[in-house]
Design a protein around this nucleic acid. Structure first.
Lengths: 252, 252
DNA sequence: ACCTCAAATTCTTATATAAGACTTAGAACA
DNA sequence: TGTTCTAAGTCTTATATAAGAATTTGAGGT
């Protein structure tokens, strides 16, 4: 029984990759790992146990672990290096920011929060965030600067039930890279998003903050951010001045 | 030798998955299959040989074939069904059309070609299509209709060297779903694309064709379409009226 | 400071078994 | 005689495991 390299103690009971389950093993394992990631079991940048170790822990072969990890890598959740190990991806602040300069370079925007308010969710907010009628949302309105010039007028909506801490927060304390904040303060990582884009005209308010004329064409990006299991986390409507930048779709 | 179902003639010598090669087998196989796809060795919708057959042909195990096929499936080139087989994906006309109605439904646009011309390639065209200085392009300008209303003013640019047949074509004969035409007439399938989006103002010409006022905000989509091996095929600039439709990014 | 070697890791390939889908032979029935 | 249904058989892809190769890292020696 005393095989060298065996993991310490008894820890083989808690996983229960139920044999009765119809779903394939690698999928159950992926789900478990996903849950751990969501629970901050491993920190971003941290190395996961090696494939053989995980295989031992779950009582399956290395290849099965590998398949689960492969899928998470293709989702951008993990990063692997031969000879080194498998790490939790550290999301750069750029990960979900798709406005590029003409030369293709990315600039990190600065942000100035204008207002935080609590409102009844609108129809589109309820649809996007999958909220029941009567639920409330917290709205954060801010202006974002690229190369020190105001380029984006942005309205962020989140469920008050999930992010009540925002309601009492001072506008100055709203962090710039807010997805990181969701992950660190609330333990809710944003792992995917879906964008819808239109052309629009600058309103009076937008014109004032973006230093442009009323009616100037703006690129409107309506973005819904999702956490694990496709749970919608945030709706964001960004109205962007695209004189020096453009939105870049991920190559399909 | 006369095994039933055997492909005709001798075809087992040409593969040469050179043992000297440093690249993994599955990658070399993928490359070969990709080349066959590009050469129209199998037609869209057609079933490929089964995994064991391919394994036998290439002299590798089924798992290795599987890995090559898996990657091509994830790129959307192949479609697999357990128990049936692996087929070449038939691209619907919608595959690369990202303008959706508010309810999320897709409408196939009608097109009216306005003009076909041959010009020296502009700077952006040369960049997009990777053409040498002095090379010429064929430009196709057309209006596209959604639900019978003019919504898109579109300029298509392709290399004259590759698509000379366009130069002498009557405007009325330009097909609506032009990617299919590339694949069927020129044997050049479009397998991916990259979009860049901006907000813009309708010019006088656009205003006339789209039945709108000059200066109306339009969504400008600059799209470069690629064939196998990332060869750029076409640049397309679509200026879209987004009062009833919106651009939808593929979920990342 | 540089080189060598050993240990740990992921990567590649192969093989075996399971599960789903289509085909066809043949019985049952009209 | 023709039709319909059933079930077995055969083809397909899906899943799981194992073993050796390639790569990185770091310790130890020169």
């Amino acid at each position: 029984m005393s095989i060298k390299g065996q993991p310490p103690q008894s820890q083989a009971q808690t996983h229960s990759l139920s044999q009765m389950e119809k779903r394939p093993l690698y999928e159950q394992i992926k789900e478990t790992l996903l849950a751990r990631l969501a629970a901050d079991y491993w920190r971003p940048g941290e190395l996961l146990p090696s494939e053989p170790k995980l295989a031992g822990e779950f009582g399956v072969s290395q290849g099965t672990i590998r398949r689960a990890l492969d899928e998470m890598v293709s989702q951008g959740l993990l990063t692997r290096h031969q000879g080194r190990g498998t790490a939790v991806t550290e999301h750069t602040p750029f990960r979900f920011f798709d406005l590029l300069r003409a030369d293709g370079a990315r600039e990190l925007p600065e942000s100035k929060t204008l207002r935080i308010s609590v409102n009844a969710a609108s129809r589109t907010e309820r649809d996007a965030l999958e909220l029941a009628t009567g639920k409330k949302v917290i709205r954060i309105i801010r202006v974002r600067y690229l190369n020190l010039e105001p380029k984006i007028y942005e309205t962020i909506s989140v469920s008050r039930d999930l992010f009540s801490a925002f309601a009492t927060m001072d506008a100055r304390d709203v962090p710039n890279t807010i997805y990181n904040y969701y992950e660190q303060k609330f333990g809710v990582p944003v792992v995917s998003k879906r964008d819808r884009l239109r052309a629009a005209s600058a309103t009076q308010v937008e014109a004032r903050y973006l230093h442009i004329d009323v009616g100037t064409p703006l690129l409107e990006i309506e973005c819904v951010a999702y956490s694990h299991r496709n749970q919608p986390i945030e709706q964001r409507i960004s109205r962007c001045l695209t004189d020096e930048h453009h939105y870049c779709s991920s190559p399909s």
